[in-house]
Write a protein that binds this DNA or RNA. Structure first.
Lengths: 197, 197, 197, 197
DNA sequence: CATGAATGAGAGTTCATTCAT
DNA sequence: GATGAATGAACTCTCATTCAT
């Protein structure tokens, strides 16, 4: 596969990404992607055998970009509390964007694709995020920004709350206020006094 | 619809429930249900137009039974802490049963069925469970079993943690130990000292 | 499957038979049969999963009818030589009808369908035909019509010659005269003097 | 077409030959051959328009080599009976090698390619083999090795028996013993007493 | 009420064939 | 000459849904 093909493959993945954001995972057919990409039926099969393969590629791209974004925000000379707040604000924004998110598609995808590959991406993302939060809290504690007895437990707890908010946003719906309340609750648990928001 | 029909409808819903537990929601076709029920194709259409309608009925049945179970355990003369522990243990059991659960099917269902109906069941269940936990905590605080400054926030937090655990169990997989850790963390947040478990 | 369905199945088999006679086996698609039968795409799948299944049914029907035809001709009070001549004449007619024969389709079918089922029909037909010829020759020898030292070997030899003629007719082509010469050769081997034909 | 091209064409034909031996004729696609040859899709089309053209070339090559083999064995100072036995033994070996033979592919090819070309190769091979056998028998008769009244008829009969055995081997299956019995029958017909084999 | 045969739309997939490079 | 990406036609197969009985 030459360089040109790499370009096209990337184009397909990016186009498919939009389709997945709109329709989730299961509902999307090869035909949908063919039409979105405006290529021929057979053309798509030159690059991918099925929607799962395409979606995996979408996830891979996604997680790369996610890493980049994270390291960008950390580079700045912000305090731990600042960074945590930024992170939570980012999550909130993501949460409330019901459409234009891969959340639903990702959940659907992992519903029907068993363990072995699973660990690769979604779990990896979860674990690495948990670890980063843990580090942040530790730094915050050292700097006297936070108070916390069980940094690891707290970090994990935050992650599960975020997951809970994410899935709730997609199923029962959730208001910005509800998210704010959870964020406040998290901060209070770290001994941060809430001035405004 | 005569009584006989009511019987048959119930039979269909109960049989379909098993199918949904096994295959989730989206993958299930009318044909699957027809075959599981061993009725005629046309017969099923006399009672339901599509799988969504059937699944809604399954959910309705489910939530009735869920209420019953809850009130049963509350009737006993247990302390608030006992009841909370029981509830959390029950949730743990449910969480770890990856198959034989409607969890996945329910999520899938709400992924593609928009807001208006949503409030009906899943949200109702969520809210009522949150309220019950809140009450439990309040009672526990009164009795000196728990310590808690923001009962409502804590209850909501518990619910989101549980949701987060539930979806994680279905997607990235989760170990019993991880669930135990979260439960301990929740209890510690309520000022309960962990002896054993 | 009710009686009506049996009727339809038979109709499909009979229609498909014509298609196989015209196009052989491999070239025939489910679509071809659907169109020949003037039924719907899905309709055909109610009765048969693939062309192999249909062709097997065609063969089964064929072999039943073949048996009938044979026993019919034997019922008459003909001599062994008469019957053998009749049989060979029948074979000749069949041989030379390049189209409107299942020969080609049958060969193609057995080319790609391995042993276990194979014995069922084609081999059975071969063996039973060989046995009948053997019997005929024995009777003919008893009646002084034929002269033959190794009836079984002769019968088998006749069968292979016929097979050879059949496949040659389909591949290199064969003239009526060539067939006649072989028949004469067979008869001479049995000590029958050739008057005319 | 330069010499280089001739080389490549020959390479394609030889590689395709193996493919045809494995899969017959109809099942083989241009893609199969492209992949087996490890050349480009377009590259193959520079030399051949379709699989029929390729197969014809395979046959041409085959018949050249067949002639060579035959003349080789005849060159030796063997008796007619020896040569005939050798030829029959060779045929037997070929017959029983169900795979690694072009037999099936050849039959399939002639099934769908009508008369005009047919005479070219397969018929030519058949006729020339028949003639050689006839000559052999005549020589054998002159030398007192064989007894035979109708050399031409006998030769043709032998050819059809061999064809019958060949197609039977591919369709209903055939045992080595069955082939031996036919060979013995042929020899006995020539007045050769069977000692061992 | 109940049946199940029938329909037809639509998804998946494979290849012969072309053509710009 | 050679490459291989791209196209589109053709096939297989599955279901939701209808309807005569």
């Amino acid at each position: 596969m030459g360089e040109k093909s790499v370009q096209k493959k990337k184009y397909i993945v990016e186009t498919a990404r939009k389709v997945f954001m709109e329709k989730g995972f299961k509902k999307v057919t090869m035909k949908d992607i063919v039409e979105a990409c405006e290529i021929s039926r057979g053309g798509l099969y030159l690059y991918f055998e099925n929607t799962s393969q395409i979606f995996l590629e979408v996830l891979r791209l996604e997680s790369q970009e996610a890493d980049d974004v994270f390291s960008d925000s950390i580079k700045e000379d912000a305090t731990a509390a600042d960074i945590l707040l930024l992170f939570l604000a980012e999550q909130k924004k993501e949460l409330l964007r019901k459409k234009d998110t891969l959340t639903q598609a990702t959940y659907e995808f992992y519903f029907e694709n068993e363990l072995p590959k699973r660990e690769n991406i979604l779990k990896k993302q979860f674990d690495s995020a948990a670890k980063i939060i843990e580090k942040l809290i530790e730094i915050g504690v050292e700097n006297g920004e936070f108070y916390c007895e069980d940094c690891k437990g707290t970090a994990r707890n935050i992650m599960f709350v975020l997951e809970g908010l994410k899935i709730s946003a997609q199923t029962i719906g959730i208001t910005p206020e509800a998210v704010d309340r959870e964020i406040l609750y998290i901060l209070r648990g770290l001994g941060v006094e809430d001035e405004e928001n």
